[in-house]
Design a binder for these strands. Sequence first.
DNA 1: CGGTCAATTGACCACAGTCAAGCTTGGTGG
DNA 2: CCACCAAGCTTGACTGTGGTCAATTGACCG
Lengths: 252, 252
Amino acid sequence: MIKELPSLVIPGATIEILKASCASCSMHQLCLPMGLDNNDMERLDQIIGRRRKVARGATLFRIGDAFQNLYAIRLGHFKTYQVNREGAEQITGFQMAGELLGMDAISADQHHCTAVALEDSEVCEIPFATLQQLLAEMPTLLRHFHRMMSQEITREQSVMLLLGNMQATQRFAAFLINLSSRYEARGYSPNTFQLRMSREEIGNYLGLTIESISRLLSKFKKEGLVRVSNREIELLDTRMLKAITAGTETCG
Amino acid sequence: MIKELPSLVIPGATIEILKASCASCSMHQLCLPMGLDNNDMERLDQIIGRRRKVARGATLFRIGDAFQNLYAIRLGHFKTYQVNREGAEQITGFQMAGELLGMDAISADQHHCTAVALEDSEVCEIPFATLQQLLAEMPTLLRHFHRMMSQEITREQSVMLLLGNMQATQRFAAFLINLSSRYEARGYSPNTFQLRMSREEIGNYLGLTIESISRLLSKFKKEGLVRVSNREIELLDTRMLKAITAGTETCG
DNA sequence: CGGTCAATTGACCACAGTCAAGCTTGGTGG
DNA sequence: CCACCAAGCTTGACTGTGGTCAATTGACCG
């Protein structure tokens, strides 16, 4: 299933067909093909439209775009955001390799958020109409697809808890712990990683200002919880950060 | 498909098998069977475990319960909430007739939130394992089920926008307008309705305190936007409320 | 009736927002 | 190599929105 086609360009994003398959992708135990046998994975591979590159800052889809495809992130990071009528953005999530983009578009056949690459990234385009046919024939795939949608619901509920109930310090600790565990699940260091998003984007996501994020970073640094250098961050006291997240920390 | 069986009781909730079917249910154009032909609707009807009553204040499922069923609300209102490690609740939604409960439980085979009836209510129990078999055979049902899950994702994203970006006044106006439009979609008056939840529950949902909700109600009353008497509310100036929601209102 | 619970209102306060100045960092060009 | 600039980040001083605490009113019910 190796595909070789000339690359093409659309406004703001470079598209290129890559030699790739689910079986050879390091994310296949997290992504849509999770748990499929070789035969089923091959079938899924065949319906994947193309693998394309999305340059840093380029838009994968925007609010109002007609819904055609889901996108599985092969490599890189994205943010998704909503825009209210005033034009204010609210970032609804940061997505990394192995995660699915576009599931909110199924309900009304058009995208309800905009997805932008935070760094040079690669996605697999999954034509939803074709996927749906396949779902009817492959119970394992159907099951896992439902799990992924459900996981998105659960994730958003956690953010609601964060935004509705937590203090600034708690929100930020929760954010760091969340990133940490997701990197760990991908085989990366849970303690040292790059923040792919700006302070402004973090603040927007957490319902805080950029100044608050900056102050919180300084505070955590002073308390010996983290080491920070620009976007490089090291978690020095995960235990404490988790305690802050849970609201059970005792000392100040 | 009329079922007639003796009623039984489980702790906290009365269960009773009712004479009912999707075809005879007033919600079937909003609920899971939307768009199904008579034959398919009949098949869906057959897998529905039972129709049961849930008394006001009774719990339908709680966090950590093993996932067996989805629940379609036939009648009444529910709230769902998450609990953090400190024991603080965050209400993640208010659900009404025609809406589906339990979709967040698919991902990990256990419920991630607790669902409690806000008034005496009735639900249809949908065994998920059986539903999934049916989904593979009925493309229309599959399609609509995905729409409903996607709609839940979209709804939660709107709440994230509300909690992350909006001021107290804006949040509360958005809340009222949201209820209004959902009652309208069900054929009820969009202007006059009962608030099924307490001020405290509204505040919790909107990330505000009960005092703030009370003050906002008084403010809206004074400005002639609403008329309130206990839980009975009448929206007198929907146009203005929508403007406040959108953040585009000009006068104070 | 009094008792209970929910809602309202007022006084005060604190957390995080706003505004503003200053500091890094990285890129460009002389 | 350094000057210059822009963008992003940090820090401080001040402010305001909404939280906290407390007292009062109102609704419902045995």
